[in-house]
Design a binder for these strands. Sequence first.
DNA 1: AAATATTTTTAGATAAGCCTAAAAATATTT
DNA 2: AAATATTTTTAGGCTTATCTAAAAATATTT
Lengths: 218, 218
Amino acid sequence: MLSFAEENYLKTIYHLSKGGRKDVSTNSIAESLHTKPASVSDMIRKLSRKKVVNYKKYQGVNISKEGKEKALLVIRKHRLWEVFLVNKLKFSWDQVHEIAEQLEHIRSPLLIERLDQFLGFPQYDPHGDPIPDKKGVINSKPQIPLCDLKLNDSGVVIAVKDSSKEFLQYLDKLGAAIGTKIRVLDKIAYDGSMEIDIGDQKSVFVSGEVSENILITS
Amino acid sequence: MLSFAEENYLKTIYHLSKGGRKDVSTNSIAESLHTKPASVSDMIRKLSRKKVVNYKKYQGVNISKEGKEKALLVIRKHRLWEVFLVNKLKFSWDQVHEIAEQLEHIRSPLLIERLDQFLGFPQYDPHGDPIPDKKGVINSKPQIPLCDLKLNDSGVVIAVKDSSKEFLQYLDKLGAAIGTKIRVLDKIAYDGSMEIDIGDQKSVFVSGEVSENILITS
DNA sequence: AAATATTTTTAGATAAGCCTAAAAATATTT
DNA sequence: AAATATTTTTAGGCTTATCTAAAAATATTT
Ligand SMILES: [Mn+2]
Ligand SMILES: [Mn+2]
Ligand SMILES: [Mn+2]
Ligand SMILES: [Mn+2]
């Protein structure tokens, strides 16, 4: 049985090891969780004793099979609750992450099963992230960051990499919600910014940073 | 801001002071929370510093005005979540208490407001307990324990005093859910047990303990 | 009223989870 | 390869919430 803190560490380690290489650095975990490296070292030792991560001093950690299962269950709960908040309680997609951070730790297998059913077995959360099934299996569509599209390529917004309030509210303002068609009108080599057409309706300029955080399916 | 543990202590102190006299003993709190009196003494000192209880050493505690407000908010959340679990997720009334014990600590005023609305502003939880409103106001109907009814009196089950799995499952077996009509056929002075008619359908004997835990409106 | 029993508080530990500062290991420059 | 910089770990503290054992206060009997 893992504590809330242990679940949060494990989830972070999972996310960090998914993006980059297998081994995750102490500093990157500390940065993600807004804690100090010393605290991370302590916690990693504890997670290692519990066999949810593999760890050799000074060599970074990687998540074990059981650790991954536990992390995916927390992520499943997080995303199901986000769907509940948006679809049933009419929250907007930029309001739900913080609340889901709390709800993801509620312990009751039956609750999650019933919630899943109540929501109609959703496949994706409000930010386009896939919801792992009971066994932790993720059914993910190919996602390309907008910045990787070529001139005149088009595709549909399928997810966002950054789920912060600020970014989501900016996308709302652009009218670039999930499901919106986007076409690349111009790519500015100088700073990585782009001119894009949103929903065949308007053309706007977005920064390189923004274009990295919008995920497209083609 | 109160911790989960502090919220649980406060809720317990509120419940204990509602039933009997105003001042609550250290031992009774310890018993309710399955902790030791020494731990209770520590916690009471802390709650007293936070002004949510009034406390004089060796004289017991009573809850303050702010304490009562905070306790009622936790109780409001607990009962709304129980309604959600039963009405929306199809849990039975004996399955929801433990899960609500976790959900009652989720912090988000907007979430509770939306949940209340989603549920249609329910007045009572699945065990017949009244749900405090946003301001902590409780709208409670008069409740009499079954054991206080006289011979041939009748009334409707409006709530239960004990919400344990075991008791609720026994009531299910009796067919004495909330809303069921009950009439007193006989009162056995010897042991306080009763013969009752349930829903004009069948007569059964119930122990004195059971008849204390069934609440009736007349 | 004195003796005894019960209740409550205090003293001293422990575990989790965090911190800062210092030491040790590893990585990067020169 | 040596010097320097960075990363990671360890050492030692702090807070919260719990415990057991002992002391102090209050309540009950005799
Ligand atoms: Mn989220
Ligand atoms: Mn999400
Ligand atoms: Mn309950
Ligand atoms: Mn209830």
